[in-house]
Amino acid sequence: MYLEAENIKIENDLYDHQEISAAYLESEKMAIKAQSILDTNTRWSVILRELLEISPDSLIIEYYDASNAENLIIKGMSGTVKDIAQLKESLKEKPYYTNVLLNLIDKRVRSDNEVYYFELSARLTGANTR
């Protein structure tokens, strides 16, 4: 019985590691995509550079959408709610984001680790984005 419980724990830990590794690889792909946008589109370079600078290190941005010139949507995950709140407050302090909202926060527990998935949105004012 003990060995079976240990085996299940090891399988859960492996699953968590694979999920986090997949999220990390996806964030690396996003970074490459972001760099290509930085190289070709000055308008979004400010936004992408700011996201990189103000995001806490333990927070992973998995998705962003700025295809609508007036709105920005950011989705990601973090080990703490504090990091998500820090990102939200940092966005509010910047002159080109207004109406910054936390649309979704979803706590999931994998093994003994809590992971918080989130979605933030903001309205772009146009200052410093052109």
Rank of each mutant, 00 (worst) to 15 (best):
70 E>I: 08
86 Q>L: 11
101 L>K: 13
102 L>M: 13
67 S>F: 02
68 N>F: 09
62 E>Q: 13
52 L>N: 14
50 E>Y: 03
89 E>W: 08
89 E>H: 09
99 N>A: 14
51 L>C: 05
78 S>L: 07
52 L>R: 11
103 N>F: 05
81 V>M: 09
91 L>W: 01
73 I>L: 15
80 T>P: 01
57 D>P: 04
67 S>E: 15
94 K>T: 05
51 L>A: 02
59 L>V: 01
56 P>S: 13
51 L>S: 06
97 Y>Q: 09
78 S>F: 02
72 L>R: 05
80 T>K: 07
80 T>L: 08
58 S>Q: 11
63 Y>G: 01
47 I>M: 06
99 N>D: 15
57 D>G: 06
78 S>P: 06
72 L>Q: 02
61 I>E: 01
97 Y>W: 14
88 K>Q: 13
87 L>C: 09
82 K>D: 06
94 K>N: 06
65 D>V: 11
58 S>R: 10
103 N>P: 00
82 K>E: 10
101 L>V: 11
100 V>R: 11
71 N>A: 12
52 L>C: 03
79 G>D: 08
48 L>G: 09
78 S>G: 09
80 T>Y: 05
84 I>F: 03
75 K>L: 03
64 Y>N: 07
74 I>C: 01
85 A>N: 11
55 S>F: 06
89 E>F: 13
88 K>M: 13
65 D>S: 15
76 G>K: 00
100 V>E: 09
87 L>Q: 09
55 S>A: 15
95 P>E: 15
81 V>W: 00
87 L>V: 07
82 K>Q: 12
92 K>R: 12
49 R>K: 15
50 E>K: 11
83 D>V: 01
72 L>W: 01
79 G>R: 03
84 I>G: 02
70 E>N: 12
86 Q>V: 10
80 T>I: 06
66 A>V: 10
73 I>H: 02
90 S>C: 07
62 E>I: 06
51 L>P: 01
96 Y>T: 03
86 Q>Y: 02
85 A>S: 11
103 N>Y: 09
53 E>P: 00
62 E>G: 12
66 A>S: 12
72 L>E: 06
81 V>T: 02
62 E>H: 10
93 E>L: 14
47 I>S: 02
73 I>C: 03
52 L>P: 00
47 I>G: 02
55 S>Q: 06
55 S>W: 04
62 E>C: 00
78 S>Y: 02
84 I>R: 03
96 Y>N: 12
98 T>G: 09
87 L>H: 10
82 K>W: 01
54 I>G: 06
73 I>P: 00
68 N>L: 11
93 E>T: 12
